[in-house]
């Protein structure tokens, strides 16, 4: 038993260690603050700021959209609004969507892009793919935390003359706040790190995207591009990008901890 713990911890520490030790040295101010125009892939200077910006431009709107959609659905799944058996059916659908590999969302968007004659990729479809990917994650996380809201609390809100929507938006939402924050950040983390869905939808670019129909670079796809280069020096830059991605994931988890703690001071047990 102890051996298996060692295997697990060892392999996971190995992963983190490899990225940190290979990535941190290649990191420099220049690589973080310049775009990859002018031969970043060829061993010349430049950096991957455009990929950082691109990733944020994809993941932030996607998370925002998925959050709005997710919270609406999660609140509506309560038995105040929806018959519990229908709600459970929707939960199963969402669980299936959660399990669907992200590449399927990529193919879905690619199919639509081919159908409307769009080639090469665009920010818009990247956002759509990530939104689809994040909706089930965010919705089900919020849903689980709403399920924990005590029935007595809702009764209290109704007793004060609240309507259903007021109860949902003002009371249930506040009580479920830590879960909502955790769910949204979980979704954001999945979105910003996912390569398969955006690989098929956003294309690539060495510049900052300026419109929704532009192609864009993103952190995960840039890693793939870098490791496929023949030059060893260029390949090593992939670790710097991966390091940044890892730091973002770490940051998300720290922020989650901080915010859930902060937002749970009002929670009624």
């Amino acid at each position: 038993m102890l051996a298996s713990v060692f295997i697990v911890m060892g392999s996971l520490i190995l992963i983190v260690g490899v990225i940190v030790f290979n990535g941190a040295p290649s990191l420099s101010l220049q690589i973080l603050t310049q775009t990859s125009e002018g031969g970043f892939y060829l061993g010349a200077g430049g950096g991957f700021l455009n990929a950082i910006v691109g990733s944020l431009l994809l993941a932030l709107p996607a998370t925002g959209l998925a959050f709005i959609i997710g919270i609406a659905i999660a609140l509506y799944l309560q038995k105040d609004f929806l018959n519990p058996s229908i709600a459970n059916f929707i939960r199963i659908c969402l669980d299936i969507l959660w399990g669907v590999p992200s590449v399927v969302y990529g193919v879905f968007c690619l199919t639509i892009m081919i159908a409307i004659g769009m080639t090469g990729g665009s920010v818009l479809f990247g956002i759509i793919a990530l939104t689809l990917l994040e909706i089930p994650i965010i919705t089900r996380s919020i849903d689980e935390s709403i399920k924990m809201v005590p029935a007595g609390l809702k009764e209290t809100a109704y007793s004060l003359g609240s309507t259903k929507v007021e109860t949902a938006m003002k009371v249930v939402r506040r009580q479920a706040m830590p879960g909502i924050i955790a769910g949204v950040l979980l979704g954001f983390g999945r979105g910003i790190g996912d390569a398969a869905s955006i690989l098929l939808t956003v294309g690539d670019s060495n510049y900052f995207p300026t419109s929704l129909s532009d192609q864009t670079a993103a952190l995960p796809t840039m890693i793939l591009n870098l490791v496929s280069m023949p030059d060893q020096v260029v390949q090593n830059k992939a670790y710097a990008v991966a390091f940044v991605l890892l730091m973002i994931v770490l940051l998300i988890s720290i922020i989650t901890r901080y915010l859930t703690k902060k937002s749970s001071k009002h929670i009624i047990k």
Binding site: L14, I15, V18, I19, D194, A195, I223, V249
Partner: peptide, 24 residues
């Protein structure tokens, strides 16, 4: 110590795992 570590790792992007696999 272990629980938060595991939770963080559940969120590490697959491309990062792929990169390590490639090297190691």
């Amino acid at each position: 110590i272990v629980r938060p570590f595991i939770d963080v790792l559940a969120g590490v992007p697959s491309v990062v795992f792929g990169l390590c696999a490639l090297l190691v």
